[in-house]
Design a protein around this nucleic acid. Structure first.
Lengths: 145, 145
DNA sequence: TTAAACTATACTAAATAGATAGACTAAATA
DNA sequence: TATTTAGTCTATCTATTTAGTATAGTTTAA
């Protein structure tokens, strides 16, 4: 399951992406608009800042804003930041590789083979899902109502 | 991530599927061959029995055996049994549906839309992955060595 | 100079994961 | 029929993670 941290991060980033170029948005504003506990969101935005996706200004009329372009931030990246690997078993991750302790031979492991397929399919979808694309999808869904 | 329970269940079921029709296999045998803690595996096989995938005989020469055909047991089913829904957010599951508390409008939610795609792609792969198919994949991988 | 807003660390409650313990029941066989 | 073997079933334990709160700052614009 996607953690609340990832979910809130995605929601907050979409919020910022919709206002890309408008200057800093206050944490309290985002928290209220998006129904996210403010204190919790503070920590999330702080991590997003440390990883170079957003930036902030302090003090009065401060807030957070996106520094990457909305079409350059994709969900896979955000999820990896907060939840770690996207793969469902550690032996098919690139960045967090670990062998399965009970595995007899990784090269012939059918479980690994299937979960690698799952991982590849998932990553393909989550790399296409940029913030810009998320906004586009929402607009499309609204039109269809 | 896949839980150890699901992983061990899949391994044990593949073990039984390879010996389908050979009569009961002891828990201790499976545990030793597959490097799974025996007591832990007991509980797992017990759950698999209660959900009608395997059956068992007690006493001397007892053990577990598959009652469903290897081509009728697929990974999605095993994972749902031990780990719950395959979807990454509860608003796109069929069997465990729950609305996201922070969601403003489910019908136009782009996050939901993308994670529904992920879910569908994952389920498609995990439904094809029957025990019979897992054995076939392993054989293919061995030949390729 | 003050209040709004971010920075940083630490803490806690609840849930879950991974496993173990132990008493019990059934079946085979010597 | 006594004994051994192996599954049955419930309970417990411990460590980790998750989700969220608390507190004590520091910056900066108005």
């Amino acid at each position: 399951m996607l953690s609340k941290k990832s979910k809130y991060a995605i929601i907050a980033l979409i919020h910022l992406a919709k206002r890309y170029g408008d200057g800093p948005i206050m944490i309290g504003r985002i928290a209220e608009d998006e129904n996210i506990p403010k204190k919790f969101l503070e920590g999330i935005l702080y991590e997003l800042k440390n990883s170079g996706i957003v930036n902030s200004h302090r003090g009065r009329s401060g807030g957070y804003y996106l520094i990457k372009k909305p079409q350059e931030v994709y969900l896979a990246q955000i999820m990896r930041l907060f939840d770690g690997p996207i793969a469902l078993i550690p032996c098919v991750t690139y960045q967090y590789y670990e062998p399965c302790p009970e595995c007899k031979d990784e090269k012939t492991c059918s479980i690994r083979h299937v979960f690698k397929e799952v991982r590849d399919a998932t990553v393909e979808i989550l790399k296409k899902a940029t913030l810009a694309e998320m906004i586009r999808i929402e607009e499309k869904l609204i039109k269809q109502l």
